[in-house]
Nucleic acid binder design. Structure first.
Length: 911
DNA sequence: GCAAGGTC
């Protein structure tokens, strides 16, 4: 054992935050009669010193702290600038941990103190993050003094017994817990940075996102917590949009006597079938005599809430005071810093049996508003006391939020400080109180064989409700009825109602969704919500209810249509399960990292290959910009080692003219090249290795083909291999080479148009222009696709298309087509001018086919001629589209009206 | 300029 001069072991104790360092020092120094305190290098993190004895061994204790994580994970410098690399590289770019500038002073304190100490005792919070921070501290301290003996103190509350117990039974830090957090950090960073860069660079260039034209500061971030949070908001929003109001009928009955009125509700609730409801109603009217069949009297209890956790505090402050969770945390933090409430970031909703609850209550007896209640609570004769119930959560680090100091209001407190302090105090007093007691009466009657119920309640003892004014438990008094009693109802009515959509998500609902799905932690959930507002993904109304913005909805819609559930909570849950496996040693950190990052990279590449869907979704809400699409999105990637020169890699490239090729990096020394079919519109190297081709590894490529350039029997999406095993790719290469498009294997040829009128080497702009040339294998664009980006329909048609898909569940294509046509007609009526962003005709989504068809005829009567989508008969591809009226709708060139070609290849163009 | 997690 290391011993310093003077016989005492010098022990450096490090806590996660200054407040814990202070508490630990106070508790441990009581034995020796007090401590000295001095400043550290950081003005927040003081150093406390005192004598102590561990297992009979004299120790000189130094207690200091960090402030949460000491280190940050970052990419190596050369990957830090956004345009320095392909975002896909961020899945394997080197990362390192370092101490950021604003934590350097804490680092120096640790180094200086560690040099003079023999032991390091880690007092970090006893959770995974705490264990990870512990290793950061170890890193810094052993860097300054490699001979340190390292110990971990495990404690579950800042109380004497726990702390003394912990220091007398020192343990070793748990590497597995820290590993789990390392994996989490790395995955979050790589996924977040790659997707954020990808979608920001892609969409900022392609669309006008800011009305003022200044979108320099716009970041379209993606994060494994922020996106699922946005997902909850959008999902509810879509539910509301998809809601079809349905009329229903119900029978109501009331009876007024000397004692008052009883309202009886039909036991069937309501019926959607009008005739059934009428038949039953008529039976009741014909024999209206009601017979009381049962009278039940029951005692009911209403229990006080569980002790207060962070999430409950946020939810209740939002519900009772409409405070934003982020603001609640700010105010709570200030109350905590000033010593009025306990630590506000806790999952625990159960008081440890050691807590002196009575003394906390005693602190409050002088308060003008709730002091009397506190006194009653302490009076055994009042029988109001009940030990708090256990909510079942324990973070093993902090107690539930409770008052720690009396205040009748401080002069520097805002209204919100007062409200929050009052909530914490009343909540605590309520927790320690008896439940409210009520007497409930239920009366069941029968009219012509139909059952009806009425119920009433009388509160016998308010108990905790006296102090917890936020809860109410009303009830009506019911007249007295006896079994067998008969009466004729005062009223008996057949009433109609309409089903309503669910409300928008309120902040409290959102927090519940996140909590349930494990999105974020108690300390970060409010950050994720705020981030959605900051990024303009969502807005919050005066009732704290959230709606997605166009941007938020478009992003979720885009990913949804790619088929990825990146906006759902599953990815986070999966990661969370993996972290758990790492922390118990069931999986290794590297195994989880490798597996997760490989999957996410494949997903990233696929998303990028399908970026047209993201662009489509954005195109339903935003106008296109004139800027060129960022070519960094198509940078080169290694496909396989070159078998010709055996020296360099073959990489996927795209020429200026649009063709894809896989060529040797050794060019011009090595001229090995594989040309890809001209029908390829997008290609991206995936992480998947071909099991058959060699020399390897040969990475598979995710292709997207232009529908018009391939036979109808082929899919537009294809995961292929250029190593020689891929028959589909071979066939498409042959077709491309010898097919009607007259494309040769030498795509260097500069030709803007082939004799058949098909342009070769489609540029990025063309991919998104929406005008497609007709080709041999074309199945025909739908009318919607044709008008998607035409000047006057920036927003509506594609939006309708998606709504229709949602409404028809992707089912009957005929219905979908009819609806399409109907919506297009309707647009003509309503949108003769471009629409503002606020009004994008969401009503279309709710329009039934019946209503749509009415609009269709109205549109026809209006006689407006849309561009090129109002032809007769069939289009060039033999495809026919039918309007709601059954009449064909077709496409033709909007310049000359000729149905055999589209405007982009019109010979009259520009004349 | 990117994430989420600590915390001041």
């Amino acid at each position: 054992m290391n011993r310093g001069g003077g016989g005492a072991i010098r022990v450096l104790n490090v806590a996660e935050k200054p407040s814990v360092a202070k508490s630990v020092a106070e508790i441990l120094s009581r034995q020796s009669g007090g401590m000295r305190s001095r400043e550290g290098r950081s003005r927040y993190n003081r150093v406390f010193e005192f004598g102590y004895s561990i297992a009979g061994q004299a120790c000189h204790m130094l207690v200091t702290s960090v402030t949460g994580h000491l280190m940050e994970l970052e990419f190596d410098d050369r990957y830090r600038r956004w345009h320095s690399c392909d975002p896909a590289d961020l899945f394997h770019a080197p990362v390192r941990k370092s101490v950021p500038q604003d934590k350097q002073d804490i680092k120096r304190t640790l180094e200086e103190e560690a040099r003079t100490c023999h032991w390091l005792v880690l007092w970090l919070d006893c959770d995974r993050e705490g264990e990870n921070i512990a290793y950061e501290v170890v890193d810094i301290c052993t860097g300054a003094n490699s001979r340190l003996n390292i110990w971990r103190a495990r404690f579950s509350a800042l109380i004497d017994r726990e702390i003394n117990e912990a220091v007398q039974h020192l343990d070793r830090p748990n590497k597995l817990f820290a590993d789990a957090v390392d994996a989490r950090q790395e995955i979050d960073l790589r996924i977040g940075a790659s997707f954020t860069r990808f979608q920001t660079m892609l969409l900022k260039d392609a669309f006008v996102l800011d009305d003022t034209g200044d979108d320099r500061n716009i970041i379209l971030s993606y994060g494994p917590c922020q996106f699922p949070t946005l997902g909850f908001i959008v999902e509810r929003f879509w539910e509301i949009q998809a809601h079809e109001p349905e009329e229903f009928w119900t029978i109501n009955c009331s009876h007024t006597s000397d004692e008052g009125t009883a309202s009886f509700v039909w036991i069937r609730g309501h019926l959607f079938d009008y005739s059934s409801a009428v038949v039953i109603y008529e039976m009741c009217v014909e024999e209206p005599m009601a017979t009381v069949q049962n009278v039940r009297n029951q005692e009911k209890l209403k229990y006080p809430p569980y002790p207060l956790s962070t999430i409950e505090l946020q939810k209740r402050a939002s519900r009772y005071f409409r405070m934003a969770s982020e603001h609640t945390m700010k105010v709570a933090e200030e109350l905590y810093q000033a010593g009025f409430i306990s630590y506000p970031r806790t999952e625990t909703d159960n008081f440890s049996p050691n807590t002196d609850l009575h003394s906390i209550v005693r602190d409050q007896v002088a308060h003008p508003n709730w002091g009397t209640y506190a006194q009653r609570l302490l009076d055994p004769e009042a029988r109001l006391w009940k030990n708090p119930s256990n909510g079942g959560h324990d973070d093993k680090a902090h107690p539930p939020i409770h008052p720690t100091k009396f205040s009748a209001g401080e002069t520097n407190w805002s209204d919100n400080h007062k409200k929050l302090y009052e909530l914490v105090v009343r909540h605590f007093l309520a927790c320690c109180s008896q439940p409210a007691v009520g007497a409930e009466t239920t009366v069941e009657i029968d009219i012509a064989g139909e059952q009806f119920n009425a119920s009433g309640r009388v509160v016998l003892a308010k108990n905790y409700l006296d102090i917890y004014r936020f809860d109410s438990w009303g009830g009506t008094l019911l007249p007295t009825y006896t079994i067998g009693q008969q009466f004729v109802p005062t009223t008996l009515t057949l009433d109609s109602g309409v089903t309503r959509p669910p409300p928008l998500l309120a902040e409290a609902d959102l927090l519940s969704c996140m909590d349930k799905a494990g999105i974020g932690t108690d300390a970060t959930m409010h950050d994720h919500i705020k981030k959605l507002l900051d990024r303009s993904y969502a807005t919050k109304d005066a009732n704290t209810r959230f709606s997605p913005t166009n941007l938020g909805e478009a992003l979720v819609m885009g990913y949804d249509e790619m088929g990825y559930e990146l906006w759902k909570p599953y990815l986070r849950s999966m990661m969370e399960a993996d972290m758990k496996s790492v922390s118990v040693g069931a999986k290794s950190k590297s195994e989880v990292l490798e597996n997760c990052l490989q999957q996410m990279k494949a997903c990233f590449l696929d998303a990028r290959a399908n970026k047209a869907k993201l662009l489509d979704a954005m195109g339903t809400f935003f106008a296109r910009s004139n800027r060129p699409i960022n070519e960094a999105q198509n940078s080169i990637e290694a496909v396989r080692p070159c078998a010709a020169c055996n020296e360099a890699e073959m990489v996927l490239k795209r020429r200026q003219t649009g063709e894809f090729m896989v060529s040797c990096r050794g060019f011009p020394q090595c001229r090995n090249v594989v040309w890809l079919p001209g029908s390829v519109s997008e290609a991206a190297v995936t992480g998947q290795v071909c099991p058959t081709c060699g020399p390897g590894p040969v990475y598979k490529i995710q292709f997207k083909f232009r529908r018009r350039d391939i036979p109808p029997t082929f899919d537009v999406d294809h995961l292929g291999c250029i190593g020689g095993c891929d028959d589909i790719l071979k066939e498409l290469t042959e077709i491309s080479r010898f097919g009607s498009h007259n494309q040769t294997a030498t795509p260097a040829r500069n030709q803007s148009q082939t004799p058949s009128g098909v342009r070769q080497g489609t540029s990025m702009q063309d991919l998104h222009s929406g005008f497609r040339p007709a080709g041999q294998f074309t199945n025909g664009p739908t009318p919607v696709a044709q008008v998607k980006y035409s000047a006057h329909h920036v927003e509506n048609p594609a939006y309708h298309e998606r709504l229709i898909q949602r409404l028809t569940g992707g089912g009957s294509s005929i219905n979908a087509k009819i609806l399409h046509a109907a919506f297009l007609w309707e647009d003509d009526v309503q949108n003769s001018a471009p629409r503002g962003r606020g009004a994008r005709g969401r009503g279309g989504g709710r329009t039934s086919s019946r209503q749509a068809s009415a609009s269709a005829s109205a549109g026809r009567r209006g006689g407006s001629q849309g561009r090129g989508r109002r032809g007769r008969g069939r289009n060039a591809d033999g495809m026919m589209f039918v309007a709601a009226t059954g009449e064909p709708v077709n496409n033709s060139c909007f310049i000359c009206g000729d149905p055999t070609h589209f405007a982009n290849v019109c010979p009259n163009r520009g004349r």
